[in-house]
Design a protein around this nucleic acid. Structure first.
Lengths: 198, 198
DNA sequence: GACTATACCAAGCAAGCGCTTGGTTTTGAA
DNA sequence: TTCAAAACCAAGCGCTTGCTTGGTATAGTC
């Protein structure tokens, strides 16, 4: 199903390229792509800005790479989380949790960058990521279809999904995993949006 | 209650300043603040870029003005929509609808700019808008408190509100009012997120 | 018509950006 | 040790941007 995305080898996070991507992802996430300069990224990693272009063709290429890896990681993580889960409810719960985890961004994850900086990516960059995004879309579509009548009634599934994603994405603006409210609790509170009887 | 925000006189949309604000809002909404140049804004309105600075001190000042007016308009619109409505359910429904309407942006509304470009605004600009934002926050808080046990159970109201707002904000990325799905329908589909029994 | 205020034009400045270029240093393999 | 590849440095280029400056044009008032 999602073979194409899995084919991509994850970048070693401790390689020069990997460190750049991690640093860039963090800056893109907090400052936005346009307000992050190549000098910022270089300083974050402890090199001079000209050196970046030894590893990446352009600033846009960094963004593309960060986004690409973000999709692949998320797909991989979702697939692992789904292993052994049977019920549609459990499976969708796991997916919500994975998404919240990826949105947190504290482990180098850059889903927030993918979501909120999509329009900063060049057209050719967007094109190159469509396959991965489609694979991710398909994961959700498949699970939503499988949940059928368990889903909230009276709301078109297309719209329901977009409401839920919107709600989850917005957690990047307010959620702090400070021990008071863990990911599992947050996930459980998100469930009623999706399910008629959570 | 929201007297401070109402004290601000709306800019005449057809005045030179008003036309600039409308044009800027549209561009900020579609391209983002950083990728919108003052030359873009000037071209949108049909003037030369230097002329903008006769009306606004800086590019940041345009953004602040656009956001300020957006908050004021929204508050005003919500207050009007609430007139004569008694039930907590009807009142919150009206607020959701107002928010969706403002997010659409096709009537010069710039709520999407306020929401998604907040971090592009300078610190002093953000400070100057806090009063308006607080007034808006208060509207929601008051109505949420009034709805009490009608709200979805098992979800902290603080979190519930943020989920709902996130879902509504994200409509800017997918919702097209193309006649198939009107604002009222969309509003009705959003209600179950907030209410236990919509 | 004279005068003032408002709106706008045109040219260009200073700062900062992504990126190139010509190098030096470090790393790893033989 | 030698050599080549990888990583990085330093300087600066060409371009873009927000904004300034010195004006002209238009609108409104008396």
């Amino acid at each position: 199903m999602a073979e194409p995305a899995l084919a991509l080898q994850p970048t070693d996070p401790d390689s020069p390229r990997g460190r750049l991507m991690r640093g860039a992802a963090q800056l893109f996430r907090t400052k936005g792509f346009d307000r992050t300069t190549v000098r910022d990224i270089a300083a974050e990693v402890g090199i001079q800005s000209g050196s970046i272009f030894h590893h990446f063709r352009s600033k846009d290429d960094i963004l593309r790479a960060v986004m690409e890896e973000s999709v692949c990681n998320l797909i991989r993580r979702i697939q692992q989380a789904l292993e052994g889960l049977e019920s549609p409810r459990d499976r969708l719960r796991a997916m919500i949790r994975c998404e919240l985890e990826a949105l947190r961004g504290d482990q180098g994850d850059a889903l927030a960058v993918l979501v909120y900086e999509w329009r900063s990516l060049s057209e050719s960059g967007q094109k190159s990521l469509l396959e991965g995004r489609d694979a991710y879309e398909k994961l959700w579509q498949t699970e939503m279809n499988g949940a059928g009548s368990l889903l909230r009634q009276g709301v078109d599934p297309f719209i329901l999904r977009r409401f839920v994603h919107g709600a989850l994405y917005w957690t990047t603006h307010w959620y702090q995993d400070d021990g008071q409210l863990g990911l599992d609790q947050l996930t459980d509170m998100a469930m009623p949006m999706l399910f008629q009887d959570p």
